[in-house]
Design a protein around this nucleic acid. Structure first.
Length: 290
DNA sequence: CTGCAGGGGTAAA
DNA sequence: TTTACCCCTGCA
């Protein structure tokens, strides 16, 4: 594959740190020069920001411009979304200023499912390590710029992998979940192409929940961060619970705040773009702590 | 140095 | 509603 370059000029709402460190993806790594390199589908890309211009460079399976526009959700008007959300209240306004360059990536459905199964009760460095080892062992190699990269393995590529082999990669108790989900997808007990076409979000959610290792939080992450693109869902993890309690509920013990309570407030305040609001709040809260 | 809690939850009891 | 679960890290 030949290297391609694409330059976006005068871009609005696009910050590398915000996009890659807001918890939606696991395969983008910061380089010494501040740029990020990542693998998605059969593409390896380096993204660099220079003033208001963004330079995309890498090897792509297709036209780099089309691929970038799709993956980075460039057709969506985040300025308008931020306008709406920032008027809701002052906390939302502050968190949006903090993560003003966030964009929700269009990530491959299969990769998102497996990545977030791995994320359960886990921390980011370990999640990233597991995904890299999975790719290195079972994905396809792509060489670019003297470096080796590996695509995320397809269900077919994981067909013969045993539970024990997963365990040896450091999956821990998630080994069986990965095995079961892979075979449910291979056997079309859950048909990902059908899922992609299904308009009813609740039906899609139900299907996702039937997968092994997918509970409410993971299902919502898949709905929001993959090509399913459901911006109305509001994934609730410990950070989101924390920030929602601090801002709106103010319970002495945040662990006592129910999911339903948080969901209701999110729905009332943020409506059909609650998922994006969640990203601003999550990034804001998490970076403050870090 | 050893011990132990806790981490972007889930499934089974 | 409560509890165990793999593995790694941070900290007492």
């Amino acid at each position: 594959m030949e290297e391609q370059t694409y330059i976006l000029k005068n871009i609005d709402s696009f910050e590398l740190e915000h996009i890659f460190d807001c918890g939606q993806c696991f395969r983008w790594n910061k380089q010494a020069d501040g740029s990020y390199t990542g693998v998605f589908k059969n593409n390896v890309l380096n993204v660099q920001k220079n003033g208001d211009n963004v330079i995309f460079k890498g090897v792509c399976n297709g036209n780099i411009q089309n691929i970038v526009i799709d993956y980075f959700d460039l057709k969506r008007d985040y300025k308008q979304i931020k306008n709406i959300l920032s008027k809701i209240d002052e906390s939302m306004n502050i968190s949006i200023k903090y993560g003003s360059g966030i964009r929700i990536l269009n990530q491959d459905l299969w990769e998102t499912i497996i990545s977030f199964i791995i994320s359960a009760n886990n921390n980011i460095p370990r999640i990233k390590g597991i995904i890299e080892r999975l790719s290195k062992n079972y994905g396809k190699k792509i060489e670019w710029n003297g470096e080796k990269y590996y695509t995320f393995p397809t269900p077919e590529e994981l067909k013969d992998v045993t539970v024990e082999q997963y365990r040896n990669l450091g999956l821990g108790f998630r080994d069986i979940r990965l095995y079961e989900t892979t075979h449910m997808v291979l056997d079309k007990k859950v048909d990902l192409e059908e899922l992609q076409k299904e308009p009813d979000t609740l039906k899609v959610r139900e299907k996702l929940l039937s997968l092994s290792g997918v509970g409410p939080k993971v299902a919502d992450c898949i709905l929001l961060f993959s090509t399913l693109k459901r911006f109305e869902v509001f994934p609730i993890d410990v950070w989101v619970r924390r920030v929602m309690n601090e801002l709106y509920i103010k319970n002495e013990d945040e662990t006592k705040v129910s999911k339903k309570q948080i969901e209701k407030i999110a729905q009332e305040k943020f409506g059909n773009i609650a998922g994006i609001a969640q990203q601003y709040l999550f990034y804001w809260k998490r970076e403050q702590k870090a």
